[in-house]
Amino acid sequence: MTIIQNNTAIHKPIAAVYAFLSDLNNHEQLMPDNIYNWTSTVDEARFTIKNMAKLALKISDRVENKEIVCIPSEEAPFAITLRWKLEEQGAEVTNATFVIEAELNMMMKMMASGPLQKLVDHQVNRLKEILG
């Protein structure tokens, strides 16, 4: 299991951060430029990663003000779980951690680890930009 993660402090109450992340329609704002053909609902998102693959994700688990878990809703190139974990750091500060867990063989790990880390870093930074 390959685990890739990053976190940031958001100056918003945990309920506001959870409300934003629990709606996959909002996740398009977190994506880098190499994502296109985005379509989404509250619970599912479909998109294409330029020069890589098409992905369809769905929220498999929501724990209010704590965690949102996404898994592929269709066949993916490898088993993957995307997880946002939230922790209250005070009334107006939330620690948000984005974790990607992927089943990668050695060759896939060499090819995908860098782009997946860039994706995690980009999404965490965009969340901080959007929500403060």
Rank of each mutant, 00 (worst) to 15 (best):
A9Y: 09
A9D: 07
I10Y: 06
K12F: 02
K12L: 08
P13V: 02
I14R: 00
A15G: 01
A15R: 07
A16C: 03
Y18V: 01
A19K: 11
A19D: 11
A19Q: 09
F20V: 03
F20M: 03
F20I: 03
F20S: 02
L21Y: 01
L24T: 08
N25F: 03
N26A: 07
H27E: 10
E28V: 09
E28W: 10
L30A: 03
M31T: 06
M31Q: 12
D33A: 15
D33G: 12
I35M: 12
Y36R: 13
Y36F: 15
N37E: 14
W38V: 14
D43I: 06
A45K: 06
A45H: 04
R46W: 10
F47D: 03
T48A: 10
T48G: 03
N51H: 12
M52C: 09
A53D: 10
A53R: 08
A53L: 11
A56P: 03
A56D: 09
L57E: 04
K58Y: 10
D61M: 14
D61T: 13
V63S: 13
V63A: 12
N65W: 05
K66I: 01
E67K: 15
E67H: 10
C70A: 14
I71G: 03
I71L: 13
P72C: 07
S73R: 13
E74M: 13
E75I: 14
F78L: 04
I80R: 00
I80P: 03
I80L: 07
W84G: 03
E87R: 15
E88Y: 07
E88W: 05
A91M: 13
E92I: 12
A96N: 05
A96T: 06
T97E: 14
I100C: 02
E101G: 06
L104Y: 03
L104D: 00
M107V: 12
